[in-house]
């Protein structure tokens, strides 16, 4: 997993609420057995016509946002299916950070496992970032994970909360499985205990 430390990039505004994982990556692209290559199909049905041509109005098709690395989104981003293909597609496109007032649980978790930082901020802060993002390619926002801040293109700073364990993993690009296997002794002793207490399990 790539580290996430500090990012300055273009932010794409997507004010729609309840953007679900079926929109982020429709199911016809879930048939892969790999993690990479999903970026071209990110937001596929919003982004392309049936004949495969681009829908020019869609934000990521606009010249200003083709290189976006941040999405500022409406409430409840990532709801629906648990498919990790959603963060894989975002990452493959180049998105490293999503900012919203709330995220669906599973999507939120999946982001951290893939080096994407999901940031929850109050409505008024998201409103400011959304307006800033609408200014286009020159409006670069800065996300500093160490300092836990987002800075608008004109210097307004918002602080955000992040779980300390997740922050640590993201800053250092650490793999969860490796960390857990260091605690194998605890798992062994739990299993021994459970075999006595719950022999049917």
């Amino acid at each position: 997993m790539d580290k996430f430390t500090k990012l300055t990039g273009i932010a794409a505004p997507m004010a729609l609420v309840n953007i679900d994982t079926d929109m982020i990556i429709p199911k016809q692209f879930l048939k892969t057995i790999k993690r990479s290559g999903l970026g071209v199909n990110l937001f596929d049905e919003m982004r392309y016509n049936l004949d495969g041509s681009e829908i020019p109005e869609f934000v990521l098709n606009q010249p200003a946002y083709r290189e976006a690395q941040i999405i500022v989104a409406g409430d409840n981003f990532g709801c629906g299916s648990s498919r990790e293909h959603a963060p894989w597609a975002l990452l493959d496109f180049g998105i490293r950070c999503v900012i919203s007032t709330s995220f669906a649980d599973i999507f939120f978790n999946n982001c951290f496992k893939n080096g994407i930082l999901p940031i929850v901020l109050p409505q008024d802060a998201v409103d400011v970032l959304m307006e800033d993002a609408k200014k286009g390619a020159n409006a670069r926002q800065t996300v500093d994970l160490e300092a836990q801040t987002v800075t608008t293109s004109d210097g307004r700073v918002f602080s955000f909360d992040v779980d300390s364990h997740r922050k640590h993993c993201l800053l250092n690009g650490l793999d969860d499985i490796g960390l857990t296997l260091e605690k194998a002794a605890s798992i062994d002793s739990y299993e021994a205990k459970a075999a006595q207490a719950f022999p049917w399990a």
Binding site: I106, N110, N114, L181
Partner: peptide, 20 residues
């Protein structure tokens, strides 16, 4: 719980899930 694919791998390897 529903989980993502990274967590599927985590559970396969460790039979545990990292949770708060």
């Amino acid at each position: 719980h529903g989980i993502g694919t990274s967590e599927v791998e985590h559970v396969l390897a460790t039979q545990t899930l990292i949770q708060k």
